[in-house]
Amino acid sequence: MHIVGLYISPIAIGALKDLILTILSTLLSFVLGILFAAGRLYGHPVIKLVIGWYVEIIRGLPAILQLFIIFFGLTQIGINLSPLTAGLIWLVAYGTGYAVEIFRSGIMDVAQGQREAASALGLGRWITMRKVIVPQAFALMLPALTSFVVLQLKNTTLLYLIGYADIMYQARLGADATEAPGTLYLMAAAAYLIMSLVIGRIGYRLEKRATAYR
């Protein structure tokens, strides 16, 4: 118990850092994801191809390899990034790859009939998108978006491997100092568990509210 009391505040601070990174990277990846999804659906064939390959590469390579390429790999060509910068760039790059697919399938899942009805009513393309497609797509996508946020949160763990002082980093320090790794890593696991459950809860609430649109 003594150990728990000693390390609870560093781990809580680490958790807060991870949470901020998660929120920031999620927002940025959503913005980029929507743009890329629009590009992949309605863009020039070359743009479609490039975005398609981007998604494949992000999904095909291990997360840790991508992060290491950004942090260690780029030093070879003279780009030195701090752990925080490299971590954030990677989280956004990785998140965007996954967000594109969520938004793309969300937009495609809204029935074609909705689009036809909107254009029969003389609504412009932009208005159709904003007032008809997006609200319905959003409700459809919510479960996927919730698990996306949890995935991003879990991904922040990897930043410890490039020396960013997150939950895992604090747990590791504690484990080395106290020789009670079990307690420390369980505390880390509990911190992630609590945050994931809270995110899941929020997602569930939003889902309930969003079903009103359908």
């Binding site: 949890v150 763990t157 747990a171 790794p181 890593y185 880390a188 696991a189 992630y192 994931s196």
Partner: peptide
Amino acid sequence: AVPVLVIIF
């Protein structure tokens, strides 16, 4: 809900 890395550790 727990990251794989934490489970491995």
